[in-house]
Write a protein that binds this DNA or RNA. Sequence first.
RNA 1: GUCCCCAUCGUCUAGCCAGGCCUAGGACACCACCCUUUCAAGGUGGCGGCACGGGUUCGAAUCCCGUUGGGGACACCA
Length: 553
Amino acid sequence: MSVRVRFAPSPTGHLHVGGARTALFNWLFARHEGGRFVLRIEDTDLKRNVEGAEARLLEDLRWLGLDWDEGPDVGGPHGPYRQSERRAIYHAALQRLLATSRAYYAWDSPEELERMRRQAAERKETFRYPRPERFPTREEAERARAQGRPVVVRFCVPEEPITIQDALLGAITFPPEQLDDFVILKSDGWPTYHFAVVVDDAQMAITHVLRAQEHLMNTPRHVLLQDALGYPRPTYAHLPVVLNMDGSKMSKRDKHRALRQVLLRALDARERTLEQAAAAAGVEAEGLERWLHGRVDAALEVEGLERLARWLGVRLPEVDVQDFRASGYLPEALANFLALLGWSPGDDRELMSLDEIVQVFDLKRVNRTAGRFDRTKLLAMNTQWAARLPRERLVAAFRDYAAARGSPFATLDDPTLERVLEACRGFRTLADVERKAAFLCVPDRAVAYDAQAVRKVLERDGGRGYGVLERALPELEALSAWTAEALQAWVAAFCEREGLKIGELAQPLRVALTGGTISPAIQDTLALLGRERALERIRRCVAARAAGTPDTP
RNA sequence: GUCCCCAUCGUCUAGCCAGGCCUAGGACACCACCCUUUCAAGGUGGCGGCACGGGUUCGAAUCCCGUUGGGGACACCA
């Protein structure tokens, strides 16, 4: 039987790195085994579904380098691939359970359930739903519904220990008192996750379920349902979870936490007021207050969160695949890093492409230990990937990055982008390239001079830097060839003649050309700018000194 | 609280299943030095770990038990 696996996200937002790791492992397994990778959208909770989230999810997956054989966009023989379109399938399965008394109707109110839970807690007992002596009939259930009761269907859990087999963890036995008659059909008529997952996995002929370990406790429920419905049990493999560096669970909450911390400090120091913050975020002060103390993340939507972060000058931690993309990470590096988080090839290889990983991916080599998401390691890996990727691929990645964040680099042509990338060799992220070459996208007359750089490099020692520029300018103007090679030769010759160290020429030039002290090697900076633009900038810089303009040199 | 999972450098990990080849290997980070035209990158070296306690064995990082620690799950969310 050929391998079939699935990744089943909920359309609630962007793809989280934890989810990406799960998707990746499923994909790697499928590809290694020559099986099929199915994408299914779990959208049975209508309230939580976010407009456009599905499209974003698919885009994030594709960006990472994953593809799927069946899914909501490409279809397939086991569709539809959105749970919201499979209602009839769930109801058919449900009827079988009801007909054999493996499930029953119930209509307790949330308040009643809450009271029972509280009472159990007071008695220091684990709450278990009290199964009725006699199961209500369909007619009784309908009458209750007509009276406005929230009618659900609960699964009748067998009173015996349940043992599941996990490909990674081995056999795990759960005592029966740990499980109670859980809800499989919600009062809104939609199946719960447990029921939908079991029906879909069976109907889609899923052979292996690779999912995060946080689902381990759900597995006995699923297996029990499979047994009751006469479905085969798929092979389970519960992947270790991904944690933050501090050992906490990695989640979207992290952004809120980071921001809260900074805002709280700013308020304490009286640097900002709550009203200002609320205005910056575009929310009510009252809502922000609640968010600040009450941990109600919903009070601050993604946009508000980002506005507030910008206003406070905070860099939000990356948690979604999209965040890493916007921070200038390469998909090759993220995928590689994620693959190594919980899996290793067994030798010392680390830098591996998805193709290479597919070749050797083996479930047996997946760890059981939770792994911490080490951003510095990812950064290092990104640096290595940037150094080893072919030029064309880097250009495409840089273009993707620039487009994603609306950078002016997106408008430059490929040969120029290629030269920029080449000049910035050694960069860690694409954001570094953008920063280092930013001077290119600034109009010549709008170069912003860094006051400290001007002081240190140009004005110091009675304007030594300016003097160098004044002597260098006519020579540059007379230069016949304006290539990096010719410029480098000129730099060497000029310094030789003047008795200067290269830095004593390069730094003043750099400030004149870019306004700051960070740019590619000086010959590359000059070449990238081109003769006219470079000379114009140097002339303006020299002239500004003569004029004594205060804020420009 | 109950249940479940896990345990090798600060972090990711190799070694564990089939005990000796391990005075435990690699990578990231860190430190030092080198290179240098700024920022990076690069080169060389260094620091650093089998959580603890009992067994089993001639021999344990490897097998067993316990302790401790970490994590996860306990919804009409998925």
